[in-house]
Design a protein around this nucleic acid. Sequence first.
DNA 1: GTCAGTCCGTGGTCTGACCACTCTAAACCG
DNA 2: CGGTTTAGAGTGGTCAGACCACGGACTGAC
Lengths: 255, 255
Amino acid sequence: MQDLAVSDIIVRSNDEEALGGAARVFTFFRDKLLSGELKAGDRLLAERELALALGVSRPVLREALRSLAMLGLLDIRHGRGAFVRAADASVLGQALTLCLAPEPNILDDVLQARIAIECQAIRLACERASERDLQALAGMLDTLVVSLDDPEKGGQADYAFHLAIVRASGSSALMKIYEAISPLLMRSHVERRRDTFREPAITSHLVDAHRAVFLSLVQRDPDAAESRLREHFKIGDELRRKNLFTSYQSQASNL
Amino acid sequence: MQDLAVSDIIVRSNDEEALGGAARVFTFFRDKLLSGELKAGDRLLAERELALALGVSRPVLREALRSLAMLGLLDIRHGRGAFVRAADASVLGQALTLCLAPEPNILDDVLQARIAIECQAIRLACERASERDLQALAGMLDTLVVSLDDPEKGGQADYAFHLAIVRASGSSALMKIYEAISPLLMRSHVERRRDTFREPAITSHLVDAHRAVFLSLVQRDPDAAESRLREHFKIGDELRRKNLFTSYQSQASNL
DNA sequence: GTCAGTCCGTGGTCTGACCACTCTAAACCG
DNA sequence: CGGTTTAGAGTGGTCAGACCACGGACTGAC
């Protein structure tokens, strides 16, 4: 072991003591991130310098930096350096996926979370939505109508519309959580769309329901908006079940 | 609790290519976790053996394992080994905190998320709550009443009651998200309680509101339950603001 | 002025060694 | 024989130094 600077010893003893080296460095940077002392875009010192400054070896420092990178907090680029990254909901989504992995019925469950977020979001949106938000929603409604016959585009337009509602709520917490659960929803969303886009009952409901929700939002009526949104989810669910049933039936008759 | 066989590992040579070594090992284990091939309590091979089996050096392997440990997926214990850990919502909470750190008004924002989750949860609970769930809630209601004059216990009882509602929804996704945001709420919750527990208007509202919510739940009336819950949040918020106002007023008169 | 090649700073990886902790089982003592 | 102590093996924790691979900047030639 090389010479140990006295200052290093003092700093260490005042720090958390029970934590391992890597964990100590990890929390060190995490706290800098939380306190805003490190902002997105900042560049960290070189690994060799950091290791020296923090009084740990390079492998230990790397374990900490790698952990931060895996959490999406750092962007480490070969030959360039380590950069602080803007907070990203994708990590949240991954964490949620990991947490929910062992549970059964996740899909239906996550759908419940989606309904929860959206219903609260639209209430807030009724209070807070700006003219621009409403115009954006109107545009998405149009996109949704013209892309009814394309499962891919239609699904995206549908998602964009609902996402815009959450955005119009002006609540970043709702937004982040919604983004976090979105990837889990996506998988089934497009599939369902592909199964149902030829059913007139479903496509007509789709347009009517979204339009009704939008109108309530324009009228800034939270109760109406929420109940129409709930209606939309409920009917959509029923139609999908019905469609699933008939498709199974036709499969059975083909045997 | 069983060791991971080396044969389980060898297969992966044509895997993802662009990823760095540590990232590759990381996703390797993450996928094993997601697929259920690795369950909570399983013990990993020793680092030296794993490194050999995966074809990477020990430092690289350690970067990956440390990352998994930081995510709460692994429990690495000095002198004993690395064990797979049960999914934990605390990581979700940390990730959320990190994501929301740069945002202003997080507290109010997270409260909106809380309302969202609970309102949906109580609707589901009206459908799904078991007799046991209801009895548990009844018990918590009693605890809440008898601990009105203790900010600490009262706050805990309050939280326990609301958590029990979410649990009664039977949705693990709602539950996880609720647990994730709870720590962010806790901070303000106890403080508020300390400021307001001597106000008769507030404490009486507290009991009435919780009881009303509970009764609607017993009657399995989703609309009533949700609206009473919203009422509870709304009035609680107003009372706190009012109390905050008068306390500022009295401070001013003391100057 | 543009392009190419070189050089330097950076992260990426490896090796081999040693330390610290935990458990176990053998050795020891009563 | 039974309980205690101790030595060993196996594990993670840390370290130092070296080398490779990538990216950008500088410099030289054209």
